[in-house]
Design a protein around this nucleic acid. Structure first.
Lengths: 210, 210
DNA sequence: ATCTCCAGGCTAATGGAATTAGCTTTACAG
DNA sequence: CTGTAAAGCTAATTCCATTAGCCTGGAGAT
């Protein structure tokens, strides 16, 4: 075994590059950048490896595969999103908090489109950290809505509605779906304000028909 | 320049397979089925070809490639969606129309998840039929909202809001994002109703700041 | 100083999918 | 009957994901 008997015994002439210094965090961070630039659907191990200056299979020392990488991106992105939402809503309440929260959510989707997309798919219930992150994000929203005096099913419905409105808006925006020339920021704020106004009505309507 | 005749019978089982009887419509219809079953993101020419009993490259006689196929799926899906929305809203007005429209939209997303997903990406402005279909879908919504007395920017904002709410809801639903046990149908109807109530308020707010 | 081990790189090989080129056959026109 | 265009096909190329297994640098241990 001293001499290479294999035909592929070509000595790689590269100057002893030590270690590339990868880690799961480094790989995931680069993957997030790739996803932001080319889209989560076009995130590829090949591109991540190329950017990190390693061969594709080397990534498998740090992530279990493309699907697992997407999962890690989702967790990292969820953490960032949660932090942004907390930062935006701290110290505010009511419609003020709702607008700040919504602006922060939309701004995140703009700033990190690939990462944002990764947060949408619900986590595998067995993936404890992923579930924890998703729960943390929801908690911020829930807390803000609680400031409107909502409890029980009202709070659930309101959270569902806010998420739908927010995700729908930014997703259609990202898909290039809002073509009319009218200002999007204005539409967005108006919709959030209207949603907030609705919530005020909910708080007093104990029994909602339908 | 021969016009297609529909005289080919389905003869298979012979050792030398004659013609498989494909056409763009047949390929696209099968692709929609595949997308509905495995997801638009996993729609693959290989799977479509296998189901149609032909080799993969044969599909290129009918569609220009995977991206083009997705585009055709989007158009076909948009046509179906538009027809469903028209059928649901005809003869109704106001909140009644809005609820019927919304239920039809959500039902379509449930019934044809892959096809629905294809409708989200905005069409290439140069793809005339795709733009026409997308416009037709929007027109139905716009007309229903006009029944609330909305015009100008109000109508634009309302359409944007309805689309955001609807797409967001069904997308999060499809992603498995609504985990709480509360009934989703109930939440959905409540949100649509609340949205409709908001619109009633908009109609009287004549002057919207810019 | 030397030895050992292993984490973290690597090459090779396999398999699936998309795409293109070019061949063959069928159905139909004349 | 024959020519041709459309609609199949095979073959080849490229890209990507995945797995197997080799190799080495450096951190401890002796």
């Amino acid at each position: 075994m001293s001499s290479g008997r294999r035909s592929w015994d070509l000595r790689n002439g590269s100057p002893h590059v030590p270690r590339a210094g990868l880690s799961q965090e480094v790989v995931v961070a680069e993957a997030m950048r790739v996803a932001d630039e080319v889209g989560l659907d076009k995130l590829t191990l090949a591109e991540v490896a190329a950017r990190l200056g390693v061969r594709l299979p080397s990534l498998y020392k740090h992530v279990a595969g493309l699907d697992a990488l997407r999962g890690h991106v989702a967790v990292a992105a969820g953490r960032e999103l949660g932090a942004a939402l907390v930062a935006a809503s701290v110290g505010r309440a009511g419609i003020d908090a709702l607008l700040a929260l919504s602006d922060a959510y939309r701004a995140f989707a703009h700033r990190r489109p690939g990462a944002y997309a990764a947060t949408v798919r619900a986590p595998d219930p067995l993936d404890t950290p992923a579930v924890a992150v998703a729960t943390a994000v929801l908690k911020v929203v829930f807390d803000v809505l609680a400031g409107f005096g909502l409890t029980g099913d009202d709070a659930i419905d309101a959270t569902r509605g806010w998420r739908a409105l927010l995700h729908g808006f930014v997703a259609i925006e990202a898909a290039g779906g809002y073509r009319m020339p009218q200002d999007l920021d204005r539409s967005f704020h108006r919709l959030i304000s209207a949603f907030g106004d609705s919530l005020r009505g909910w708080a007093v309507t104990a029994a909602t028909p339908v």
